[in-house]
């Protein structure tokens, strides 16, 4: 059953060996020739699976991978029972929200300290399960990089996600995220990244933010 259709991949909810699984399928693109298409799709499928694994090593829960099919560009992985952070964040009490945001910040910190860039940090890509753990999903745009720029962009994206879907509480949530982040990566690095975020916001692309904050 198709549950989401993105620009690059489709997400299916399937039955596989008696359990509910998620299948992520990268779509062939008609505009590129078969050889290029095949290579890109299989490379990205492999890369994403690797990132899911590296994130686990860094101490961030991600779906368990059951199978990687490079020929068809499929990843079959665990279906996480739970709710998207996006759906509950607005309804939490201020204290719970603070704790959850800090926890999210810590998890991002753990990724960044290992130079893992998620690439699409939004509250819909974080799932809260029954045990109260947060599981990060969709590393499709992720990469491994030591660049400060990418870490800044990663967190900036998080901020924008808060602003677009949780407008009233965006500021306190992002502050808490940075608080948790600092705890993990340390003052020195956190300061650098926060300065980077400020620099990114000052660029022309985000002019509306500059107006809002200035």
């Amino acid at each position: 059953m198709l549950i989401k259709r993105g620009a690059e991949a489709s997400i299916f909810l399937e039955e596989w060996q008696g359990q509910k699984v998620i299948m992520k399928h990268r779509l062939p693109k008609k505009y590129r020739i078969r050889q290029i298409d095949q290579k890109i799709r299989s490379y990205r499928t492999l890369h994403e699976s690797q990132l899911l694994h590296y994130a686990k090593e860094a101490g961030v829960s991600t779906p368990i991978i059951y199978m990687v099919d490079l020929a068809d560009s499929n990843i079959i992985m665990e279906f996480i029972e739970g709710t998207q952070v996006k759906q509950i964040l607005n309804d939490l009490s201020p204290e719970e929200r603070q704790n959850l945001s800090e926890y999210i910040g810590e998890l991002i910190g753990r990724l960044h300290i290992r130079n893992i860039i998620h690439g699409d940090l939004t509250t819909s890509n974080m799932v809260l399960n029954r045990n109260g753990n947060i599981i990060f999903v969709d590393f499709g745009l992720g990469e491994i990089s030591v660049e400060l720029e990418l870490k800044g962009v990663d967190l900036h994206l998080m901020k924008r996600a808060f602003q677009s879907t949780h407008f009233c509480i965006a500021e306190e949530c992002f502050k808490a995220v940075l608080c948790g982040y600092t705890e993990i990566v340390g003052q020195k690095m956190a300061k650098k990244v926060i300065n980077k975020i400020r620099e990114i916001e000052g660029r022309g692309r985000y002019i509306s933010e500059r107006k809002r904050s200035g």
Binding site: A7, Y31, R32
Partner: peptide, 17 residues
């Protein structure tokens, strides 16, 4: 050509989406 133009088309498609 195929590689260069596939790259251009991919980014253009994402911008469209």
């Amino acid at each position: 050509q195929e590689v260069a133009f596939s790259m251009l088309t991919e980014v253009t498609e994402r911008a469209l989406a």
